[in-house]
Amino acid sequence: MILFDAVSKRYDGDQDALRDVSMEVAAGEFVFLTGHSGAGKSTILRLIALIEHPSRGQIVVDGRNTARISARELPYYRRQIGMIFQDHRLLPDRTVFDNVALPLVVAGHSPLEISKRVRAALDKVGLLSKERRLPPALSSGEQQRVGIARAVVNRPKLLLADEPTGNLDPALSREILRLFGQFHQVGVTVVIATHDIGLINQVPARTIALRDGNVVRDTHATLEALP
């Protein structure tokens, strides 16, 4: 699903955010990216979502070399990816329903289809009763669940989450993690960037650890080796 081949990323005048990173994530895999802030976790997610372009190296997502995706094709590429942010990135003046509907509205679905799918997504995250609320009226955990509903409403192949439990207490974090697990079970590739070791220890999933832009540990092999 995701292939990084000797990818480096250097921001203008700054030090390298990523150094010669090569890794592969198979379709349907569940992966944690860990490391301190500034280790390169977010950069990897931003490169996959084509918010940034690599300085060197190649990235292939779902069989497509991302360097060959034109500005015109970019929106259609992004529709296959669901993104979740630590700060939720909800529109505060739109209802929960409208926030979740955004990816479907943008893709031009019919109102009937939109309403069906948004309700299904909200039901999944347990917020169907709050569809008419505005995000500021919700708790942080609820807002994060709205963000998750928005990310999955378009049934993406790939789910990218950047510190999805950053501001949440352990119980809420477990709840969020359980949701990701459910999407993983229906075949979605899930990549979660987090520095929350407690979270990682709850799931026996592959973990890629980064430090200063380098991959320092990948439990992939160890997991395979387990009986």
């Binding site: 979502a49 918010i51 929106p75 992004r78 529709r79 990135r89 529109l91 943008v106 928005r150």
Partner: peptide, 16 residues
């Protein structure tokens, strides 16, 4: 600005 950025992250075309 926020709305534009978020819409583009979720696949809005420039036309949209």
């Amino acid at each position: 600005e926020d709305e534009i950025v978020i819409s583009k992250l979720f696949g809005a075309t420039n036309g949209y």
